[in-house]
Protein backbone atom coordinates (compact mmCIF):
# COMPACT_ATOMS: atom_id res chain seq x y z
CA UNK A 1 0.00 0.00 0.00
CA UNK A 2 1.28 3.42 -0.92
CA UNK A 3 1.23 5.21 2.39
CA UNK A 4 4.20 7.45 2.95
CA UNK A 5 3.82 9.42 6.14
CA UNK A 6 4.88 7.78 9.38
CA UNK A 7 1.53 8.41 11.00
CA UNK A 8 -0.27 7.00 8.02
CA UNK A 9 1.79 3.84 8.20
CA UNK A 10 0.97 3.35 11.88
CA UNK A 11 -2.71 3.92 11.20
CA UNK A 12 -2.68 1.35 8.40
CA UNK A 13 -1.02 -1.24 10.58
CA UNK A 14 -3.40 -0.58 13.45
CA UNK A 15 -6.42 -1.00 11.22
CA UNK A 16 -4.87 -4.16 9.83
CA UNK A 17 -4.39 -5.68 13.26
CA UNK A 18 -7.73 -4.56 14.63
CA UNK A 19 -9.73 -5.75 11.63
CA UNK A 20 -7.76 -8.51 10.02
CA UNK A 21 -6.59 -10.45 13.04
CA UNK A 22 -9.90 -11.01 14.84
CA UNK A 23 -11.91 -11.40 11.66
CA UNK A 24 -9.70 -13.60 9.54
CA UNK A 25 -6.68 -14.92 11.35
CA UNK A 26 -7.99 -15.75 14.81
CA UNK A 27 -10.69 -18.23 13.78
CA UNK A 28 -8.11 -20.08 11.73
CA UNK A 29 -5.67 -20.06 14.63
CA UNK A 30 -8.38 -21.42 16.90
CA UNK A 31 -8.91 -24.33 14.52
CA UNK A 32 -5.20 -25.06 14.55
CA UNK A 33 -5.18 -24.89 18.35
CA UNK A 34 -8.21 -27.17 18.57
CA UNK A 35 -6.58 -29.73 16.30
CA UNK A 36 -3.88 -30.24 18.92
CA UNK A 37 -6.21 -30.19 21.92
CA UNK A 38 -6.94 -33.16 24.18
CA UNK A 39 -9.39 -31.09 26.23
CA UNK A 40 -10.69 -27.57 25.87
CA UNK A 41 -12.74 -26.38 28.80
CA UNK A 42 -11.07 -23.09 29.83
CA UNK A 43 -9.82 -20.21 27.73
CA UNK A 44 -7.04 -22.33 26.27
CA UNK A 45 -6.83 -25.95 25.17
CA UNK A 46 -5.08 -28.42 27.43
CA UNK A 47 -3.55 -31.93 27.14
CA UNK A 48 -1.91 -31.03 23.84
CA UNK A 49 -1.56 -34.05 21.56
CA UNK A 50 -0.75 -34.87 17.94
CA UNK A 51 -3.01 -37.91 18.02
CA UNK A 52 -5.74 -36.28 15.92
CA UNK A 53 -3.27 -35.81 13.15
CA UNK A 54 -2.13 -39.36 13.12
CA UNK A 55 -5.79 -40.29 12.80
CA UNK A 56 -6.35 -37.64 10.16
CA UNK A 57 -3.60 -38.91 7.90
CA UNK A 58 -4.44 -42.60 8.05
CA UNK A 59 -6.99 -44.97 6.58
CA UNK A 60 -10.34 -43.49 5.63
CA UNK A 61 -9.27 -39.93 6.37
CA UNK A 62 -6.29 -40.21 4.07
CA UNK A 63 -8.54 -41.69 1.45
CA UNK A 64 -10.94 -38.77 1.90
CA UNK A 65 -8.06 -36.38 1.27
CA UNK A 66 -7.14 -38.19 -1.94
CA UNK A 67 -10.79 -38.20 -2.96
CA UNK A 68 -11.01 -34.46 -2.38
CA UNK A 69 -7.82 -33.78 -4.30
CA UNK A 70 -8.91 -35.93 -7.25
CA UNK A 71 -12.40 -34.41 -7.27
CA UNK A 72 -11.01 -30.89 -7.16
CA UNK A 73 -8.46 -31.68 -9.86
CA UNK A 74 -11.09 -33.21 -12.14
CA UNK A 75 -13.64 -30.50 -11.49
CA UNK A 76 -11.21 -27.64 -11.96
CA UNK A 77 -9.82 -29.08 -15.20
CA UNK A 78 -13.32 -29.57 -16.60
CA UNK A 79 -14.32 -26.12 -15.38
CA UNK A 80 -11.23 -24.51 -16.86
CA UNK A 81 -11.73 -26.13 -20.25
CA UNK A 82 -15.48 -25.45 -20.38
CA UNK A 83 -15.22 -21.97 -18.87
CA UNK A 84 -12.39 -20.89 -21.17
CA UNK A 85 -14.13 -22.27 -24.22
CA UNK A 86 -17.39 -20.55 -23.33
CA UNK A 87 -15.64 -17.29 -22.49
CA UNK A 88 -13.79 -17.29 -25.82
CA UNK A 89 -16.99 -18.10 -27.67
CA UNK A 90 -18.93 -15.37 -25.86
CA UNK A 91 -16.19 -12.83 -26.57
CA UNK A 92 -16.18 -13.76 -30.27
CA UNK A 93 -19.96 -13.56 -30.46
CA UNK A 94 -20.09 -10.20 -28.77
CA UNK A 95 -17.31 -8.76 -30.91
CA UNK A 96 -18.63 -10.02 -34.21
CA UNK A 97 -21.92 -8.43 -33.20
CA UNK A 98 -20.27 -5.01 -33.59
CA UNK A 99 -22.40 -3.09 -36.04
CA UNK A 100 -23.87 -6.05 -37.87
CA UNK A 101 -25.69 -8.84 -36.11
CA UNK A 102 -27.79 -8.20 -33.06
CA UNK A 103 -28.48 -11.92 -32.80
CA UNK A 104 -24.91 -12.95 -32.09
CA UNK A 105 -24.53 -10.22 -29.50
CA UNK A 106 -27.70 -11.57 -27.88
CA UNK A 107 -26.22 -15.06 -27.87
CA UNK A 108 -23.11 -13.72 -26.16
CA UNK A 109 -25.24 -12.15 -23.45
CA UNK A 110 -27.20 -15.36 -22.98
CA UNK A 111 -23.91 -17.20 -22.44
CA UNK A 112 -22.97 -14.58 -19.84
CA UNK A 113 -26.27 -15.07 -18.04
CA UNK A 114 -26.07 -18.85 -18.28
CA UNK A 115 -22.73 -18.89 -16.57
CA UNK A 116 -23.83 -16.66 -13.73
CA UNK A 117 -26.56 -19.16 -12.85
CA UNK A 118 -24.44 -21.56 -10.75
CA UNK A 119 -23.23 -18.56 -8.72
CA UNK A 120 -26.73 -17.21 -8.18
CA UNK A 121 -28.41 -20.54 -7.45
CA UNK A 122 -27.61 -22.04 -4.01
CA UNK A 123 -25.31 -25.02 -4.30
CA UNK A 124 -27.86 -27.20 -2.51
CA UNK A 125 -30.19 -26.56 -5.39
CA UNK A 126 -27.49 -27.35 -7.93
CA UNK A 127 -26.75 -30.59 -6.07
CA UNK A 128 -30.39 -31.55 -6.03
CA UNK A 129 -30.76 -30.69 -9.71
CA UNK A 130 -27.81 -32.86 -10.65
CA UNK A 131 -29.14 -35.68 -8.49
CA UNK A 132 -32.59 -35.57 -10.05
CA UNK A 133 -31.29 -35.16 -13.58
CA UNK A 134 -28.85 -38.07 -13.51
CA UNK A 135 -30.82 -40.57 -11.42
CA UNK A 136 -32.94 -41.86 -14.24
CA UNK A 137 -32.40 -42.93 -17.82
CA UNK A 138 -30.85 -42.14 -20.20
CA UNK A 139 -27.87 -41.14 -18.04
CA UNK A 140 -27.68 -42.75 -14.61
CA UNK A 141 -24.74 -41.52 -12.59
CA UNK A 142 -26.33 -41.85 -9.18
CA UNK A 143 -23.91 -43.40 -6.71
CA UNK A 144 -20.79 -42.90 -8.79
CA UNK A 145 -17.80 -40.67 -8.26
CA UNK A 146 -18.52 -39.06 -11.63
CA UNK A 147 -21.64 -37.37 -10.32
CA UNK A 148 -19.65 -35.66 -7.54
CA UNK A 149 -17.00 -34.42 -9.95
CA UNK A 150 -19.71 -33.32 -12.35
CA UNK A 151 -21.59 -31.35 -9.70
CA UNK A 152 -18.38 -29.66 -8.56
CA UNK A 153 -17.51 -28.81 -12.15
CA UNK A 154 -20.93 -27.25 -12.68
CA UNK A 155 -20.55 -25.23 -9.50
CA UNK A 156 -17.09 -23.83 -10.24
CA UNK A 157 -17.22 -23.37 -14.04
CA UNK A 158 -18.98 -20.06 -13.49
CA UNK A 159 -15.93 -18.71 -11.67
CA UNK A 160 -13.57 -19.92 -14.38
CA UNK A 161 -15.82 -18.38 -17.02
CA UNK A 162 -15.89 -15.06 -15.26
CA UNK A 163 -12.21 -14.68 -14.60
CA UNK A 164 -11.26 -15.80 -18.11
CA UNK A 165 -13.91 -13.48 -19.60
CA UNK A 166 -12.43 -10.55 -17.73
CA UNK A 167 -8.95 -11.47 -18.95
CA UNK A 168 -10.11 -11.74 -22.57
CA UNK A 169 -11.62 -8.27 -22.32
CA UNK A 170 -8.27 -6.92 -21.19
CA UNK A 171 -6.39 -8.70 -23.99
CA UNK A 172 -5.30 -6.18 -26.60
CA UNK A 173 -6.91 -7.12 -29.94
CA UNK A 174 -3.77 -5.80 -31.65
CA UNK A 175 -1.98 -9.10 -30.91
CA UNK A 176 -4.68 -11.14 -32.52
CA UNK A 177 -4.76 -8.84 -35.53
CA UNK A 178 -1.00 -8.79 -35.90
CA UNK A 179 -1.05 -12.59 -35.89
CA UNK A 180 -3.85 -12.72 -38.46
CA UNK A 181 -2.07 -10.25 -40.72
CA UNK A 182 0.96 -12.52 -40.61
CA UNK A 183 -1.15 -15.29 -42.07
CA UNK A 184 -2.15 -17.22 -38.95
CA UNK A 185 -5.48 -19.02 -39.07
CA UNK A 186 -7.83 -18.40 -36.11
CA UNK A 187 -7.03 -21.76 -34.50
CA UNK A 188 -3.31 -21.03 -34.75
CA UNK A 189 -3.85 -17.58 -33.26
CA UNK A 190 -5.78 -19.10 -30.38
CA UNK A 191 -3.16 -21.72 -29.66
CA UNK A 192 -0.01 -19.67 -30.16
CA UNK A 193 -1.05 -16.18 -29.13
CA UNK A 194 -4.26 -15.93 -27.16
CA UNK A 195 -3.91 -18.89 -24.82
CA UNK A 196 -0.26 -18.17 -23.98
CA UNK A 197 -1.16 -14.56 -23.24
CA UNK A 198 -4.11 -15.71 -21.13
CA UNK A 199 -2.03 -18.29 -19.27
CA UNK A 200 -1.62 -16.25 -16.08
CA UNK A 201 -5.38 -15.77 -15.83
CA UNK A 202 -6.02 -19.40 -16.71
CA UNK A 203 -3.83 -20.64 -13.88
CA UNK A 204 -5.44 -18.15 -11.50
CA UNK A 205 -8.85 -19.42 -12.55
CA UNK A 206 -7.71 -23.03 -12.11
CA UNK A 207 -6.49 -22.25 -8.60
CA UNK A 208 -9.76 -20.58 -7.68
CA UNK A 209 -11.80 -23.51 -9.00
CA UNK A 210 -9.61 -25.99 -7.19
CA UNK A 211 -9.95 -24.18 -3.87
CA UNK A 212 -13.71 -23.85 -4.23
CA UNK A 213 -14.08 -27.52 -5.05
CA UNK A 214 -11.89 -28.58 -2.13
CA UNK A 215 -14.24 -26.83 0.28
CA UNK A 216 -17.58 -27.76 -1.31
CA UNK A 217 -19.95 -29.45 1.13
CA UNK A 218 -23.62 -28.81 0.56
CA UNK A 219 -24.05 -30.24 -2.93
CA UNK A 220 -21.59 -33.02 -2.17
CA UNK A 221 -23.66 -34.15 0.82
CA UNK A 222 -26.52 -35.04 -1.48
CA UNK A 223 -24.49 -36.87 -4.04
CA UNK A 224 -21.50 -38.68 -2.58
CA UNK A 225 -21.42 -42.47 -2.75
CA UNK A 226 -19.87 -44.35 0.23
CA UNK A 227 -16.68 -45.10 -1.66
CA UNK A 228 -16.12 -41.47 -2.70
CA UNK A 229 -16.24 -39.40 0.48
CA UNK A 230 -14.52 -36.03 0.12
CA UNK A 231 -12.78 -34.49 3.14
CA UNK A 232 -15.36 -31.79 3.94
CA UNK A 233 -17.98 -34.51 4.36
CA UNK A 234 -15.74 -36.32 6.84
CA UNK A 235 -15.12 -33.09 8.73
CA UNK A 236 -18.85 -32.56 8.95
CA UNK A 237 -19.42 -36.15 10.06
CA UNK A 238 -16.70 -35.93 12.73
CA UNK A 239 -18.08 -32.70 14.12
CA UNK A 240 -21.58 -34.06 13.96
CA UNK A 241 -20.73 -37.04 16.17
CA UNK A 242 -18.97 -34.71 18.65
CA UNK A 243 -15.36 -35.36 17.67
CA UNK A 244 -14.63 -31.66 17.24
CA UNK A 245 -10.87 -31.94 17.67
CA UNK A 246 -10.59 -34.70 15.08
CA UNK A 247 -12.68 -32.51 12.79
CA UNK A 248 -10.33 -29.61 13.46
CA UNK A 249 -7.30 -31.72 12.53
CA UNK A 250 -9.01 -32.81 9.33
CA UNK A 251 -9.85 -29.17 8.59
CA UNK A 252 -6.21 -28.17 9.04
CA UNK A 253 -5.18 -30.96 6.67
CA UNK A 254 -7.75 -29.73 4.14
CA UNK A 255 -6.51 -26.18 4.51
CA UNK A 256 -2.87 -27.21 4.21
CA UNK A 257 -3.43 -29.33 1.13
CA UNK A 258 -5.39 -26.59 -0.60
CA UNK A 259 -2.80 -23.95 0.22
CA UNK A 260 -0.02 -26.21 -1.00
CA UNK A 261 -1.73 -26.70 -4.37
CA UNK A 262 -2.51 -22.98 -4.68
CA UNK A 263 1.09 -22.18 -3.92
CA UNK A 264 2.29 -24.56 -6.62
CA UNK A 265 -0.17 -23.04 -9.10
CA UNK A 266 0.99 -19.52 -8.27
CA UNK A 267 4.56 -20.60 -8.93
CA UNK A 268 3.55 -21.64 -12.43
CA UNK A 269 1.75 -18.35 -12.75
CA UNK A 270 4.76 -16.18 -11.95
CA UNK A 271 6.75 -18.07 -14.53
CA UNK A 272 3.97 -17.63 -17.07
CA UNK A 273 3.44 -13.90 -16.63
CA UNK A 274 5.41 -11.66 -18.95
CA UNK A 275 5.42 -7.99 -18.24
Amino acid sequence: MLVHSRKGKWATWTVFFVLFLPLFALPLLVIVAASFAGHWSGAFPSDLTAEHYSAATRGESLQALTTSLLTALGASLIALAAGTWAALAAAALKRRGEGTSRLSRGCGRILDALFIMPVAVPSVVVGLAVLVAFSKPPVILNGTSTIVVLAHAILVTAFAYQSVSAAILRLDPAYEQAAASLGARPAYVLWRVKLPLLLPSLTAAAGLCFALSMGELSATMMLYPPDWTPLPVRIYAATDRGATFTGAALAVVLMGATLLVLFAVSRIRTRASYR
Binding site: D172, A174, Y175, Q177, A178, A179, A180, S181, L182, G183, A184, R185, P186, V193, P196, L197, L199, Y274, R275
Partner: peptide, 19 residues
Protein backbone atom coordinates in the same frame (compact mmCIF):
# COMPACT_ATOMS: atom_id res chain seq x y z
CA UNK B 1 -10.25 -12.98 -44.01
CA UNK B 2 -7.05 -11.16 -42.94
CA UNK B 3 -4.90 -14.27 -42.75
CA UNK B 4 -5.43 -15.04 -46.42
CA UNK B 5 -4.55 -11.64 -47.82
CA UNK B 6 -0.77 -11.85 -47.94
CA UNK B 7 0.02 -8.55 -46.28
CA UNK B 8 2.63 -7.37 -43.85
CA UNK B 9 1.40 -4.89 -41.29
CA UNK B 10 3.02 -2.78 -38.61
CA UNK B 11 0.63 -1.09 -36.23
CA UNK B 12 1.26 1.93 -34.09
CA UNK B 13 1.81 -0.02 -30.86
CA UNK B 14 3.94 -2.66 -32.66
CA UNK B 15 2.02 -5.51 -30.96
CA UNK B 16 5.06 -7.74 -30.63
CA UNK B 17 4.09 -10.99 -28.94
CA UNK B 18 5.38 -10.53 -25.40
CA UNK B 19 5.75 -14.25 -24.70
Amino acid sequence: PPHRRGIGMVVQQYALFPH
